[in-house]
């Protein structure tokens, strides 16, 4: 069963349209939703959680329509939003008590162990937490009711590298169970590159691609050449190019490139930038 299936999802605002989005997240996988600010990542997540109303399309979470019995579905979903959303006056201890009455499978012991592991104070109000601590508390809450699907909206942005690494490790640990899946959005591509099995590129409300990360890295590469050499390549081989006085850097599909040309590996971040800014 797929953890998430999105078909023809459309949502229009003045000046923005999420346009017929199709995504499938298989169970046991981590999908990174990459896009610049305003690309439609948060809109997609809000639509999945039924926080906003779609104009068109369908969303299935673990085989069930997300608009029907969403209350029961959310027992299986752990969510961390960009702003976390915990009231500033509450302490971690109070949050634990509230969630105990919120989730049927709330595990107080597990929650307390996360608080300890993440060095989070139990009696300090949320407003006195740093950005990293706030995010860590959001993650502890999201993981303490034994969810099957984690939905994370910019959960790693604004964190220092040490905390980011800790958080990324927690998500990796979560997906060691093959029934657990993660959808994580970010504009910090390097985080997702470490973590994800699947990568989806969103740009101005449109899905540029959705593919297994390893396949993307196998399929695409970078070629450094002259303008003349570039012209000799098949047009279908070149997916993006950056021309400078020193030559051309081109994003290419490896399979169409002659064997005598040197192709360097490309990072997901560079792939995204080429596709968005330098596409042909």
């Amino acid at each position: 069963m797929n953890a998430l299936e999105i078909r023809n999802l459309t949502k229009t605002y003045t000046g923005f349209r999420l346009d017929h989005l199709n995504l499938t997240l298989p169970s046991g996988c981590i999908m990174g939703l990459i896009g610049e600010n305003g690309a439609g990542k948060s809109t997609t997540i809000k639509l999945i959680l039924d926080m906003i109303h779609k104009d068109e399309g369908s969303i299935q979470i673990m085989g069930k329509d997300n608009t029907k019995n969403i209350q029961l579905l959310k027992e299986d979903i752990g969510v961390v939003l960009d702003d976390v959303g915990i009231p500033e006056c509450l302490t971690a201890k109070q949050v634990g008590k509230i969630m105990q009455y919120t989730f049927q499978r709330w595990d107080s012991k597990l929650y307390n162990s996360y608080l300890q592991k993440l060095s989070l104070p139990t009696e300090k109000p949320f407003k006195e937490f740093s950005r990293g601590m706030k995010m860590k508390l959001g993650i502890a809450v999201a993981l303490s009711h034994h969810p099957k699907l984690l939905i994370l909206d910019e959960a790693t942005s604004g964190l220092d590298p040490v905390v980011r690494d800790e958080v990324v490790e927690m998500f990796s640990e979560f997906t060691r169970d093959e029934n657990h899946s993660v959808l994580i959005s970010s504009h910090i591509v390097s985080d997702l590159e470490k973590l994800c099995d699947y990568i989806a590129f969103l740009h101005k409300g449109k899905l540029l691609l959705c593919e297994e990360k390893d396949r993307l890295l196998e399929q695409y590469g970078l070629v450094q050449c002259s303008k003349e050499q570039l012209l000799k390549l098949a047009p279908s081989a070149v997916k993006g190019k950056k021309i400078s006085p020193y030559g051309v850097q081109a994003l290419v599909l490896r399979k169409y490139i002659p064997a005598n040309m040197v192709i360097s590996p490309i990072s997901i971040e560079d792939l995204f930038i080429f596709m968005v800014k330098e596409s042909v």
């Binding site: 959680l49 969403i70 029961l72 969510v79 702003d83 959303g85 915990i86 919120t102």
Partner: peptide
């Protein structure tokens, strides 16, 4: 102010 309204929509409440 604290964005709880959005967060509550991610919790199992109608």
């Amino acid at each position: 102010r604290d964005k709880w309204i959005q967060y509550s929509a991610a919790l199992p409440y109608t």
